[in-house]
Each structure stands twice: as C-alpha cells, then as structure tokens.
Design a protein around this nucleic acid. Structure first.
Lengths: 193, 193
DNA sequence: TACCATGGAGACAAATCTGTCTACTTAAGG
DNA sequence: CCTTAAGTAGACAGATTTGTCTCCATGGTA
C-alpha cells in the first residue's frame, strides 16, 4: 500500500470536513495509522500536505465531473448533466462524492485569503480548469463570439449554487441555477451546419 | 471609548483578513491595546467574540447595502445599484467597505462547516437577511408569482460573483452577474397600473 | 547471511493556543 | 474621602501546535 496516497486521502477527508487550521497533524496521523516520521518523510511541512490534498481533490473532481458530463450527452446537454451532477453532490446521491461540505477550493481560499499565497493560487487554478472543461463542451455548439461570456456566466451560476447550498442549506440551488443557465445557452445555440 | 466595540472592530478586521483559526487572541489584544482581562470580561470565550464580529459585520453590511440601494433608485434600478455596489467593493472603490477579501460569512461558513454550529447558522441568517432586502425592493415591481424565483436567482448570482471575484480574482464578476440578472428582471416587470 | 531502506511508536523541543488569576492603576459617584 | 467598578499588564496553567530525532522492527535484495 502506498503510504503517501493513503495519507493524502485521509488528510483530505478531515481537512474538507473540519478545515485546515482547525485540525492538527496528529489527528491525521492517528486517524490514518501512519507514523509522524513517515509523514515528514513524504512532505516537508503541513502546507505541502495541504497542497497535495488540493491536487488530489482537483484530479478527482475533474475526473468525476468530466465523466458525468460525457455520458452520452453532447453540447448543451452536457451542461445540464453538470448541474444535475452538482445537485446529486449537494444531496448525497452520488457515491463518487464525499458528504457535501461546500467546495474544498472555496473553503481553502477562505482560509488562505491572500491571493498571492500558493495554496490560494492552486484553488484559482482549479477553478480555471473547471471553466476550461465547460468551454470544451460548449465550444462546438454555441456561437464563438459569446463563448467567453457564456463560460463566465456558467461559472458564476455554478459557484453561486455551491455557496447557496452550503451556507443557507438550499439543496435545490443547482436546479435553480440550471433554470437560469438553460435559456442563456438556448439563445446562443449555433445553427447546425 | 467603548472597549467592547473597539475590540469587535479590531477583531473583525483581523479575522476577515486572515481567518479565525489562523489568528490567536493575543494578536487581537496587542493590536487593539486592550488587556486580556478586559476581553474576557466582555466575552466568555473566543467563539463569543467571533459571534460579535459576525453581528457587527451583519449590521454594517446591511446598512451599507441598504443605503446604496436606496439612493434615489426604485424597483429594478435598486437591484442594479446592488450589483454596482458589489463591483465597487471588489475593486476597492467604496470607502465604506474594507479591502475585499471575499464574503466574511462565506469564509466563516468554510471554517465552521457544520450546519448545526451556531456560527454557521449566524452566517446563514445573514444571507437570509440580504435576500429579504432584495425581496423588499422587488416586491412592488415584479409579478408576485415569480418573486421567490427571482430572489433565489439574484442570490445565486450575487454569491457567485463574490466567489469568482475572490477565488479567481475576476474583479468584473459583479458586472457579469448583473448582465444575467437584468433581463431576468425585465421579463417580469409588472405592468404599471 | 548481511545490508539497507522504510516505517512504527513516540519522546522531545519550542512555540503558541485559550483562559484564569493576581496586583496595580484610574476614574466616577455618594 | 471612600468605595466600587473597570481597565492594564502580564504571569501562569494546561493543552496543543509543528517539526525533529531516537530507537526498534520488518522485509526485500545482493
């Protein structure tokens, strides 16, 4: 078994549920059954472990979302699939996602508020990657002149839904966001050549 | 001078910039020049001080937003004024707001993720209050059947804009959000009797 | 068999955390 | 003038923080 991978998984679970600053290294060690020596053998500091959990989550989330968007759907349907996926995540109906506790990257941006901080920038990079995924699914189906606008709009709606679901507990936020997004997209569907 | 008030102001400034768990009580004491005894004379614990900063920010933010929405505007224009206010906040162009570092309530919800936690619920209550303010400005101007939908939509757009501005640094997010919100509102303006 | 890398368990250092408590000062009001 | 309340300054306790280091066990490989 890969100790490093195990450590990252356990650390992510705990950091995601309870926050980074609220949890000490020792919690992760006892909960993972790994020795402190081993942790500091793989990571130079707690921050490096946190960075690893961000990479781990980044990869897993993009894979998950990519798959949910790709299942037989094309174009605008893929975007609907994205909001459906968010809905399932909020409501604990997708086994591929942990108990919903907001977005890990938004949460970490809150704890590392300084935009210059490496961890904050890692969060920013993740959001850009998700936007790239949306753009990729949209680019062939909408007029290219409005592509950037639509991706920005979808990003705002997606982040807003996540925050609403987490802070106010509105578990239908993803559906509400899609209700706004859909007509926006429909209005700019490219005429099929 | 009111020691309690001063303490809350300084604590809010620091907690907002750096996060709650990342800052110790002693930082607030030295930076405010107040004795530890005095702090614990006013507040039973750090959590109570945090709760006070939430109340303080809740009041200040609602006052600020309410004023920006009320200046001569009516109906839908008041909502445009809201997004303009957010834009100024993001870009440091409103002296009534601190250096933008995201939404204090979203940030605290990230640090206190458990929905049952009193501080989390205080954040949730703030968001409901802001929605009530939006509803109040809208209720006379749109068809009553779609009022709830519109308020939900505006809330999602507002939170989405804040998160985008903070995490990815897109300081124009408020304008983009308004570009989505405006046609939604226009479509449901009540016929003037 | 001998060697060496890896990890387990945890003591330890040095700093920092929250919260309590003592001793002293200051100011207001009867 | 005397009493009382409130604040200052900071020592202190006890827990917890990150990170280092030691000692020992285990397991694969030359």
């Amino acid at each position: 078994m890969d100790k490093r991978e195990h450590l990252v998984q356990v650390a992510f679970d705990i950091f995601y549920r309870e926050g980074v600053h609220a949890v000490g290294i020792n919690r992760i060690l006892t909960e993972s059954g790994v020795a402190k020596k081993t942790l500091y053998n793989h990571f130079a500091s707690k921050d490096e472990l946190v960075a690893a959990t961000l990479s781990y989550r980044d990869q897993r989330f993009l894979n998950w979302l990519g798959e949910r968007m790709a299942t037989g759907q094309a174009g605008i349907d893929a975007l609907k699939a994205m909001f459906d996926a968010l809905h399932d995540w909020f409501n604990g109906e997708d086994a591929g996602q942990p108990q919903f506790n907001g977005c890990y990257f938004i949460n970490l941006s809150a704890e590392y508020g300084d935009a210059e901080h490496p961890l904050h920038q890692q969060c920013s990079a993740h959001k850009r990657a998700v936007q790239a995924l949306m753009r990729q699914h949209l680019s062939a189906w909408v007029e290219s002149g409005v592509l950037d606008q639509l991706v920005d709009a979808l990003a705002i709606l997606k982040e807003g839904a996540i925050v609403q679901a987490h802070v106010t507990g509105d578990k239908n936020a993803a559906l509400k966001a899609w209700a706004i997004a859909e007509p926006l997209l429909q209005a700019h569907v490219r005429q099929k050549d």
